[in-house]
């Protein structure tokens, strides 16, 4: 009889290669699922264009031929179409990041697989990371395509200003963003049926990011809250790089430094909040209940 030799690794511990494989398996699974819903993907491209079109059309109706001139006086750029399109495309990335993580948790809860994920040797962080990578790739590509199509429909040049700096702001903004999504995840773990809360948060995010207006038009207290929110810096950074609306600290590298700070702080805070709620849920009703 041949004895089956077990690997030297401690039972229940997965190798780094297995963890990476689990992460990408999650990405693949999510992409495969969403590819079955072509209507959803179409909506994802349509959403930023429609969102941007509303204030653009309202502006044209209100200010007529002087729309660009009045907008320049109020915001620092005459390119109101680019301003709104960048705002709505960034908003879709941010909003999707929150929704995808929250929906993933809720879905696993409802289908009864969340508890099983906690029991597998692959740590749940890697499954969550897979969902995060999936969300980033789906939203960023969707937002970029929407921006291109929107620019073509509304007749503006989509490639203007300093594109490299704009790209840097998006890249640096994504990490604190996914750190913050853990707050959303914690909310879903705690409240379970949190759809209305998530809907509300979506509009709060829209407001704080200044999707359709510069945050300088908000009251001072609201501006302060908005500046504590990393996507505000991401949106303003991209707009300043491409349209020249002006960085909060005057220079791109100073604003980027703030995003670097958020890159460290937001994930740490997010993980802390998520673990705290998660522990409390596991000690009480358990993660399987919904």
């Amino acid at each position: 009889m041949t004895a089956i030799s077990l690997p030297a690794r401690k039972p229940g511990k997965a190798s780094p290669a297995t963890l990476v494989s689990a992460t990408f398996a999650t990405v693949r699974a999510r992409l495969l699922i969403v590819s079955r819903y072509k209507g959803q993907l179409f909506n994802e491209i349509l959403t930023p264009i429609v969102l941007a079109a509303m204030p653009i059309l309202l502006g044209r109706a209100t200010a007529g031929d002087r729309a660009a001139e009045v907008f320049l006086a109020n915001t620092g750029t005459a390119n109101y179409v680019g301003f709104m399109l960048i705002g709505s495309a960034t908003f879709v990335i941010v909003s999707n990041a929150f929704w995808h993580i929250a929906n993933w948790l809720r879905w696993e809860m409802e289908t009864g697989t969340l508890e099983s994920i906690y029991l597998t040797p692959t740590h749940r962080v890697f499954v969550a990371a897979g969902t995060g990578i999936y969300s980033t790739s789906r939203s960023t590509v969707g937002a970029f395509v929407a921006y291109l199509i929107g620019s073509a429909i509304m007749g503006i040049n989509p490639f203007q200003g300093d594109l490299l700096i704009a790209f840097l702001f998006i890249l640096c903004g994504l990490i604190p963003l996914f750190g913050m999504t853990l707050f959303y995840g914690a909310l879903v773990l705690k409240l379970k049926e949190a759809n209305a809360m998530l809907n509300l948060m979506q509009w709060v995010v829209n407001f704080l990011m200044g999707v359709f207006f510069p945050i300088t038009v908000m009251p001072a207290a609201a501006q302060l809250v908005a500046k504590l929110f990393p996507p505000t810096w991401m949106t303003n950074g991209v707009r300043s790089a491409m349209l020249g609306v002006g960085y909060f600290f005057g220079e791109w590298y100073l604003d980027l430094a703030v995003l670097w700070f958020f890159m460290l702080a937001a994930p740490m805070l997010g993980i802390w909040a998520f673990k705290k709620i998660e522990n409390s849920v596991r000690r009480n009703e358990g993660v399987g209940q919904f």
Binding site: M54, L58, F71, N74, Y80, W203, F213, V217, M218
Partner: peptide, 9 residues
């Protein structure tokens, strides 16, 4: 949101 957006024009 829509009020502030409208007021930028």
């Amino acid at each position: 949101i829509f009020t502030l957006a409208g007021l930028t024009f």
